[in-house]
Deep mutational scan, measured.
Amino acid sequence: HNLTITQGKLFFHYNPKLCLSEIHKMEEVSGTKGRQERNDIALKTNGDQASCENELLKFSYIRTSFDKILLRWEPYWPPDFRDLLGFMLFYKEAPYQNVTEFDGQDACGSNSWTVVDIDPPLRSNDPKSQNHPGWLMRGLKPWTQYAIFVKTLVTFSDERRTYGAKSDIIYVQTDATNPSVPLDPISVSNSSSQIILKWKPPSDPNGNITHYLVFWERQAEDSELFELDYCLKGLKLPSRTWSPPFESEDSQKHNQSEYEDSAGECCSCPKTDSQILKELEESSFRKTFEDYLHNVVFVPRKTSSGTGAEDPRPSRKRRSLGDVGNVTVAVPTVAAFPNTSSTSVPTSPEEHRPFEKVVNKESLVISGLRHFTGYRIELQACNQDTPEERCSVAAYVSARTMPEAKADDIVGPVTHEIFENNVVHLMWQEPKEPNGLIVLYEVSYRRYGDEELHLCVSRKHFALERGCRLRGLSPGNYSVRIRATSLAGNGSWTEPTYFYVTDYLDVPSNIA
């Protein structure tokens, strides 16, 4: 807008934040220059609390790290170098490059900038070799853009010569660093050979998330399962459950009422301010606690030095998902009996873990797994792929695949051998790939016309006998059925096997 004052003059007093240069501009645009008398524009009460600059400061050096910015700028000295009290560095987070010096300023003089007072450097006698002032900004957020400017702080001049310097606002972004852990990993099994893994992005990506790394490792069953005799009275049979499938998407929606109208769909109840505040506090606490764990609990591995020492970490090797089922080394339970199943799973520490690289999504279907087997899954978020990966501390989750139908069934015939004193040795093959492992066998036998009897055969007993022995049988026709019990439950009964026990007292003698 054009402003013209045809008559009258300007009068400025007691404006401590208004620089004289701005008042002189007002004289020019209003056409009143030359009308004012000496005392109409006070030299001592206008701009006496402001830094009124008329020179431009330029930054000469900028260096960044993930949490620091090192700045240096060209030296500046007023005509009387004693008038320079120091520099004021202003900075704040700036997602967009549209910041002005006066953003967030209120009537009390406060604003949204963080201000650092910096002492002037030592003055050199040689004007050509003056030290460049600077400042190291610490405690910054990774991968965050900051708006920065600097200006001088000078003393009051009796001659009211307006001098000083100020830089333009520059924008500097800190470097990326390792992201925080992925949030809320959930693993479920939808079949006997697959596990579905879902997660949420890290709360602090500290860069642009480029991919996720998912490692999985087959877990050995508890050692007590191999040692305890679950045929003993009072000892509860062990059981394991597989990871249940995901709930429906509708039930997972946030901010939804727990109660549904019987007449149909209901609208979600909005969260109160107290609920939102509580969630923010919980989120802040979780982030602080995660940072504490990362800094205190997890110790970084030592990389190899120039002395030739090897990095103890196993090298990563990509495998196809079809090879995942046989990740671990199978060892027989008892070496003397080769027909026992290889369900003991000690994992070799030198073995390469299978892994998958996930790009542009937060889910993965891990296939080719062994049925009813526990897996430990390790999830890392990465925001750099080359020249070397920059990934987060791992988040861990466990899951067990679903049982395989008929995996616990005894394959092959049940054979028998009759000894003296009416002892019958029953023999059968253990299931080759049971659900988890076989903890015991149930032997059901009966003599024709009598009630059915049951015998429990422990895992250890089966390994020693290759089956079991029935003792003290009365003469007669017998039928026997056997079924295995694994961590997933009972298998199917075998087809009945028949044998006849004679009275050993009636056996004919070869003595003449």
Rank of each mutant, 00 (worst) to 15 (best):
S203A: 12
S203N: 07
P205H: 05
N206K: 05
N206W: 14
T210V: 05
V214H: 00
F215R: 09
W216L: 12
E221G: 12
D222R: 14
D222W: 13
D222I: 04
D222Y: 13
S223I: 05
E224G: 04
L225A: 06
F226P: 08
F226K: 02
E227N: 10
L228C: 15
Y230S: 03
C231Y: 02
G234R: 08
K236Q: 14
L237Y: 15
P238F: 10
R240V: 08
T241P: 13
T241V: 15
W242G: 12
S243N: 11
P244M: 14
P245T: 08
P245N: 05
F246R: 05
E247A: 12
S248L: 03
E249V: 09
D250K: 15
D250N: 14
Q252P: 06
H254W: 09
N255K: 04
Q256Y: 08
S257M: 03
S257I: 13
E258R: 12
Y259W: 14
Y259D: 07
E260M: 06
E260R: 14
E265T: 13
E265M: 03
C267P: 05
P270I: 06
Q275V: 11
L277C: 04
K278H: 02
K278M: 09
E279V: 08
L280S: 03
E281L: 05
E282Y: 05
S283Q: 08
D291H: 12
Y292K: 10
H294V: 12
P300W: 15
P300E: 12
R301S: 14
K302G: 08
T303D: 13
S305D: 15
G308L: 14
G308W: 11
A309P: 09
A309I: 09
E310D: 15
P312K: 06
R313Y: 11
S315Y: 11
S315W: 14
K317A: 05
R318W: 15
S320M: 06
G322Q: 04
D323H: 07
V324R: 15
V324L: 09
V324G: 11
G325R: 02
G325F: 10
P332L: 08
T333S: 04
V334M: 07
A336F: 10
P338G: 10
N339P: 11
S341M: 15
S342N: 06
T343R: 09
T343A: 13
S344A: 12
V345P: 10
V345N: 05
V345A: 07
P349M: 06
P349K: 10
E351P: 10
R353T: 04
P354M: 14
F355M: 12
E356R: 12
E356D: 05
S363M: 02
L364G: 13
L364R: 13
V365S: 08
V365T: 06
I366L: 10
G368M: 07
L369V: 10
L369F: 09
L369I: 02
H371Y: 12
H371C: 07
F372G: 10
F372D: 03
T373S: 07
T373C: 02
N383F: 02
N383W: 01
N383T: 05
Q384M: 12
P387K: 09
E389A: 10
E389V: 12
R390L: 10
R390N: 09
R390G: 08
S392K: 01
A395C: 07
V397H: 15
V397F: 05
S398W: 06
S398L: 04
A399E: 10
P403V: 04
E404A: 03
K406A: 14
K406G: 06
A407W: 10
I410R: 02
G412L: 08
V414M: 05
V414T: 05
I418S: 11
F419M: 05
E420D: 15
N421I: 15
L426D: 01
Q429R: 02
Q429F: 15
E430S: 14
K432D: 11
K432G: 03
E433V: 13
G436F: 11
L437E: 10
I438Q: 02
V439Q: 12
V439A: 06
L440N: 15
Y441A: 01
Y441G: 00
Y441Q: 01
E442G: 11
V443N: 00
R446A: 08
Y448M: 07
G449C: 10
E451P: 11
E452V: 08
E452P: 01
H454L: 07
L455Q: 07
C456P: 02
V457I: 11
V457K: 09
S458G: 14
R459C: 09
H461T: 08
H461M: 10
A463M: 10
A463R: 10
L464R: 09
E465C: 07
G467M: 07
C468H: 14
L470F: 06
R471L: 05
R471F: 13
G472N: 12
S474N: 14
S474H: 12
P475C: 08
P475M: 10
G476Q: 00
N477L: 08
N477K: 10
Y478E: 00
Y478R: 00
S479E: 11
I482H: 01
S486A: 07
G489T: 09
G489D: 07
S492F: 03
P496I: 06
T497N: 08
Y498V: 07
F499K: 02
F499D: 00
F499Q: 01
Y500K: 12
L505I: 15
D506E: 05
S509P: 13
S509L: 12
N510I: 15
